[in-house]
Structures are given as structure tokens and as C-alpha cells.
Design a protein around this nucleic acid. Structure first.
Length: 374
DNA sequence: TAGCATGATTTGTT
DNA sequence: AACAAATCATGCTA
């Protein structure tokens, strides 16, 4: 591509008449730049009509092609395809790749972050996220469009230039093709950089605005109540079934996976420090008992909640923290009986073995009595 | 602001 | 896949 302008040669050699036809043409071509514009134009015109010119150019083109293919070999098709595909997929998944339909991908991404999330759960953050994602998307597409436009224009320029030059120097169609390929390769690598930085921007945005770990919010009182009620009324087997989790999630206004997380944490923490949770346990069991009483009507006494299967926790009035029951339980905590000796020991033993099938589905407090049979 | 509480994530196990 | 345990990171409170 360095053909167009050459420094003028020192002395224009007189056009020497030649015998050989091809040599003649070649000589004239070489000399063409040494002449004045008018002369050159005239000579160019004459050359273009020279009967041997096509043959000469064809041969030269062939030689050039051979030379190029032998020097470059097969190093054109690199393997950045996989990476490009990955970036492409990620942009698609994040809703960046497809520009149209407002909020389509972005809201999908946001929804996916909080499947069935709480009504007012970080809605602001998500709208913020959507807004910023939309900005990124716009920037991405405008840049992409610019690059594509530039690529098209540049390719067109180069092609027409080469076609123009092919009249005065040997330029084969394959050479033009190759050049177009090179241009596309360059622009592709630019596009890849654009995609990469867009991915990074989206990841950073997600980390900042959506990653719940960084945006932890305590559950509402309602959610905590619902979860604790279930936990303490199924203390011997606090493993809610999928249905129960869904019901708890619905009642607490949280997601099923949040319910699972909560139970996972609760089991571990309860087991680690049962003493600490006794007060809480008593309160929730009392609550369950009261609820059960209300459901069954005042005439009959409610069955005690889950832990009633243990002899140590009968249907007590449960007057609140500090009563004798708590003290007994505290004692039980401090001196856990080997096996089946007390509630806590039972709970501990029951959990540590392979899990029980699934606890009863969540229901009204009356159902907690079903746990007693566990 | 330190220390605890708590929701989420990661890692290894069954 | 569900879970236990460890860990992280944030929220809350004295």
C-alpha cells in the first residue's frame, strides 16, 4: 500500500525503445512517475491499452500472491473466537447485546437477581441498576455502530483505492480480499476490546448494586417471625420441604433461596449456641401455643408445639423469659444428656444424622403439633 | 467505633 | 441437589 507517492527520481531517463514487449511495458511503468502530470496521464492511458499489459499484470499478481502466501503462511485465523463468544454470551445474558425493547434484558437481569423479591426490596437499587445498565448499553451500541461504520467506510476506501491502483500496478482480487480481511481483523479486535470493557463495566455495576452480599438488608420483622415460628415449631427436624419453603417465602415476602439460607444459618447457629436461643425458642413456642389455642377455640387446650415430644417441655403456660422452664432448658444445655435425654440433645442428634425426609409443610400454628410425632 | 447480629457466599460432603 | 460449616460483608446498637 505504499505505491501512490514516491519521491521524484533524480533524472528522468529517456524512454529507451525496447525489443521485448513486457520489458517495454515494465520500463514505461517504472518511468511513469518521473514524468510530468500530463505526460504521465497520456502514458498511463497508452499503457492501459497496451496489448501485453493484462498478461504482465496477471503474471505479476500471481507472483505476488505466491510470495505473500509463502511469507505469511497460515497465521491468519487466530483463536480469539472462543473469547469473543464468551464476551458475546455474557453481554447477551446481561441484556446488553440486544438494544431494542426497553427494559427487556435489563429488567430480566434485575428480576433474576431477586426472584420474587420483597415488594419494596431494594427496588431503588434495581432501578438504579437498570438505569445505569441502560446507559452502558447505549454507549456500547453507539460505539459499536461507530466502529462498524468506520470499518465499512475504511474498507470501501481501501477497496476502491486498490481497484484504482490495480490499473497502474498489479493488484489481484485476492490481494484486495486479503486486505479487507486484515482491516476486518483490526476492527474486530477493537470491537473485542469494546466488548471486554463493557463486560467489565457491567460486572462492576452488578457487584456494586446487585450483589446482595454487598447490599445485605435484614429481613422484615414479619419474615423473621414467620421463619422463627416454623423453626421452633419444627425444632426436632427443622428442614422445611420445598412446599413449606415456598409458603414461608410467600408469607415472609422473601425468596425461597433466602428461606433456605435462613434455615441453613439458623440450624448452624442454633446448634453452635443453643443456650443463646432458648429465650427465643420459648417465646416462639409460646406464640405457637397461643395461636394453636386460638385456632382450636377456647374450649380445648392446644397441643404443645413441636418440642412437646420431649418430656421436659410439656404444655406449659410459658409466661415469658425467666420462667422455670427456661432455667430447666438452660440447665439442659449446660449438661446435655447423652442421647434422647433432652430436647436439645435430641435436636442435635437428629440433625447430625442424615436428614429426616422433610418436615411438614408450613401451615397454621395448629400444624406444629404434627411435629410432636417426629 | 467496636462488637455482635445476620444474610449471603463458598467449599466440602453425602 | 441439599446440606453443614466456615467465612465474608454489612447492619445495628451500646
Amino acid at each position: 500500500m505504499d505505491a501512490p507517492q514516491r519521491p521524484p527520481r533524480p533524472a528522468p531517463p529517456p524512454p529507451a525503445p525496447r525489443r521485448s514487449n513486457t520489458g517495454d511495458v515494465l520500463q514505461q511503468i517504472m518511468a511513469i512517475t518521473d514524468q510530468s502530470l500530463d505526460e504521465a496521464q497520456a502514458r498511463k492511458h497508452a499503457l492501459n491499452r497496451h496489448r501485453m499489459k493484462p498478461a504482465l499484470f496477471s503474471v505479476l499478481c500471481e507472483i505476488k500472491d505466491k510470495a505473500v502466501s509463502s511469507t505469511h503462511g497460515v497465521q491468519d485465523t487466530g483463536p480469539p473466537d472462543a473469547q469473543l463468544l464468551r464476551l458475546e454470551n455474557m453481554l447477551l445474558a446481561e441484556g446488553v447485546s440486544r438494544p431494542e425493547k426497553q427494559g427487556g434484558g435489563a429488567s430480566a437481569a434485575a428480576n433474576e437477581a431477586t426472584p420474587g423479591g420483597r415488594p419494596n426490596d431494594s427496588g431503588l437499587e434495581h432501578s438504579d441498576y437498570r438505569a445505569r445498565l441502560s446507559q452502558i448499553r447505549q454507549m456500547y451500541h453507539s460505539e459499536l455502530e461507530k466502529y462498524e461504520q468506520a470499518c465499512r467506510e475504511f474498507t470501501m476506501h481501501v477497496t476502491s483505492l486498490l481497484q484504482e491502483q490495480s490499473r497502474i500496478r498489479p493488484v489481484s482480487p485476492t490481494e484486495i480480499e486479503r486486505m479487507v480481511g486484515v482491516i476486518h481483523g483490526k476492527f474486530n479486535s477493537i470491537q473485542m476490546q469494546l466488548k471486554q470493557s463493557t463486560c467489565e463495566a457491567v460486572m462492576a455495576l452488578r457487584a456494586r448494586l446487585l450483589d446482595a452480599r454487598h447490599k445485605r438488608q435484614n429481613f422484615s420483622k414479619q419474615a423473621t417471625e414467620v421463619l422463627n415460628e416454623y423453626f421452633y415449631s419444627h425444632l426436632s427436624n427443622p428442614y422445611p420441604s420445598e412446599e413449606a419453603k415456598e409458603e414461608l417465602a410467600r408469607r415472609g415476602g422473601i425468596t425461597v433461596s433466602q428461606v433456605s439460607n435462613w434455615f441453613g444459618n439458623k440450624r448452624i447457629r442454633y446448634k453452635k449456641n443453643m443456650r443463646k436461643f432458648q429465650e427465643e425458642a420459648t417465646i416462639y413456642r409460646a406464640k405457637a401455643a397461643v395461636d394453636a389455642t386460638e385456632v382450636r377455640g377456647p374450649g380445648r387446650r392446644a397441643s404443645p408445639p413441636s418440642m412437646s415430644h420431649s418430656s421436659s417441655s410439656g404444655p406449659s403456660p410459658l409466661t415469658g423469659p425467666g420462667d422455670a422452664l427456661i432455667r430447666l432448658q438452660m440447665l439442659a444445655c449446660l449438661q446435655p444428656t447423652p442421647r434422647g435425654g433432652g430436647l436439645l440433645a435430641q435436636a442435635r442428634g437428629g440433625w447430625q444424622e442424615k436428614r429426616m425426609p422433610t418436615a411438614s409443610p408450613v401451615g397454621n400454628p395448629g400444624s406444629v403439633t404434627s411435629d410432636a410425632s417426629n
